[in-house]
Structures are given as structure tokens and as C-alpha cells.
């Protein structure tokens, strides 16, 4: 089964077509990078895949089930989980609680009113394992808002994984990271892509070519090229779209 199928997705803001007849299949065990110049509609596309924005027409099919009009939380429960370009965490919660809360979302009902959630060993164990994996175990009790930028990016990935995704939508996971932080995150993503299919939006071309199995290029809401990284890199249309920038 194709994990994620995008069929003729269209969305306009007024006269501006931000998503123009986008069709894509994301295969099992594939990291599919979507690149494109600023304003190409990459984030809007992720919004429509994750349910934060509604397309005007077209379909999104996840694991054989149409999810085009499902809200974001329902998609997350199906396993279609996203991260955010601008770090989105709960700043007042500890790093551990940020992750434990995502684990809680997958572990039975949250309509429990009496026992103390922060003492639930099962949830804390899952959270601690993930924090360890992302190099944050020593920062578990620190308020998420006080973490460094790079740590927050790692935390965001840990949170997404705790939600038990079957496919990850990553919106510029390296945004704002320093060079060392970016290298760390690339290593993290290299192991992650062996576990589940990933749709990655990224500006950092080094990261894209280090990680992607396939690349699609989005320009003015339209996919102008899609294929293996080296083929896309050689595509004259792509070179033109980037106006001679090094691709």
C-alpha cells in the first residue's frame, strides 16, 4: 500500500494559486524531500496534508483512507504526524512532559481525572527513552522554553515520534539551527528515515541531498520536477527556477 497519496490538490488564496494541481505518491521507506524557492507553497502543502489547512479540491489518501477533510488531531491519531517550521512546544512544560503528553495521546483515554499524570511510569519511560535517543536525557526536567534552539528542534522530533507516527511530515526541521546543530539533526534524520516514510521540506540543500531518496521541486504551487536527487539537480527547469543558484 502507498502510505500517502496526494491527488490533484489545489488551493488558492484569492487569485494566488498556492497549490496548483499537486499529485504525489510517497512510497514506503522513502524520504521524499520537497524543495522550492521561498513562497513556493511548501508549508501550505504540508498544512493541507496535516489538516491545518483545507484544500479547495483534490484528495489526500493516507494508508488507503481518505483524510482530505479530517481535522489535524484525527489525522495524528491515524499516524499522520507533523512537525512545525517554527518550533511548537509547550514552553512551560518540562522536556519530559512534552514528550509524555504525546505518548499519552496514544495510550488510552485522557479522560482520567484523578490520578497524577506526571507520575505515570509507562508514559515517563517512553518519554525518557525518546529523550535519550535525541540526546536530551540530561535535560528532561528542564522547562522546554529554556532549551537551546537546537535542543528544541530535537525535542520537537521526539514529540512527533512519541505520537507513534506511521508517516512523518517535517516542515524545515533544521530551520534556524547552527551548523553543528544541523549536522546532529541530519544524523538523527538518517536513522529515522529507516523506520518510517518521511515527507521533508527543507531549505538546506546539503541536508536534502544527504537525506532524500526522491526530491520534488515546487515552484508557484506547482511541481515542476520530481525524481532522484541527481536527476532533479540536473533538470534545466529547476536550475532556472533557482535563478542560477547552486542546487
Amino acid at each position: 500500500m502507498i502510505p500517502l497519496r496526494i491527488e490533484h490538490l489545489c488551493k488558492s488564496y484569492g487569485a494566488l494559486k498556492v497549490t496548483d494541481d499537486v499529485s504525489l505518491d510517497i512510497a514506503e521507506n522513502e524520504l521524499h524531500a520537497i524543495i522550492g524557492p521561498n513562497g513556493a507553497g511548501k508549508t501550505t502543502l504540508i498544512h493541507q496534508l496535516s489538516g491545518l489547512a483545507q484544500p479547495d479540491s483534490g484528495r489526500v489518501v493516507f494508508m488507503g483512507e481518505e483524510v482530505t477533510h479530517l481535522p489535524m488531531d484525527a489525522r495524528a491519531r491515524l499516524g499522520l504526524v507533523r512537525s512545525f517550521q517554527i518550533t511548537s512546544i509547550l514552553p512551560r512544560f518540562s522536556a519530559l512532559e512534552n514528550v509524555a503528553l504525546a505518548a499519552q495521546a496514544r495510550d488510552g483515554s485522557s479522560f482520567r481525572f484523578f490520578s497524577n499524570a506526571s507520575r505515570e511510569a509507562d508514559l515517563n519511560d517512553i518519554a525518557m527513552r525518546l529523550l535519550t535517543r535525541f540526546g536530551l536525557h540530561e535535560r528532561a526536567q528542564v522547562a522546554a522554553g529554556s532549551l537551546s534552539h537546537g535542543e528544541k528542534r530535537q525535542l520537537e522530533l521526539a514529540v512527533a515520534l512519541a505520537a507513534q507516527p506511521k508517516l512523518l511530515l517535517l516542515d524545515e526541521p533544521l530551520a534556524g539551527a547552527s551548523h553543528e546543530e544541523a549536522q546532529r539533526l541530519i544524523v538523527t534524520l538518517q536513522t529515522l528515515k529507516r523506520e518510517l516514510p518521511i515527507v521533508l521540506i527543507e531549505h538546506d540543500m546539503d541536508a536534502v541531498f544527504a537525506l532524500a531518496d526522491r526530491v520534488s521541486v515546487l515552484v508557484y504551487g506547482r511541481i515542476i520536477a520530481s525524481g532522484l536527487p541527481q536527476d532533479v539537480r540536473a533538470d534545466p527547469q529547476v536550475r532556472a527556477a533557482y535563478l542560477g543558484e547552486e542546487v
Partner: peptide
Amino acid sequence: SRFGRVLRGIRDNPVRMQA
């Protein structure tokens, strides 16, 4: 409780909680 933790999470960042 679990419920309260979700409520507090929604207070701080509803979009994150939906995600």
C-alpha cells in the same frame, strides 16, 4: 491528572496539541 495535563497543554499551545 491526564485530563488536566491536556487542558493545560491546550491553554499553552492548542495547535501543538492537535498535532
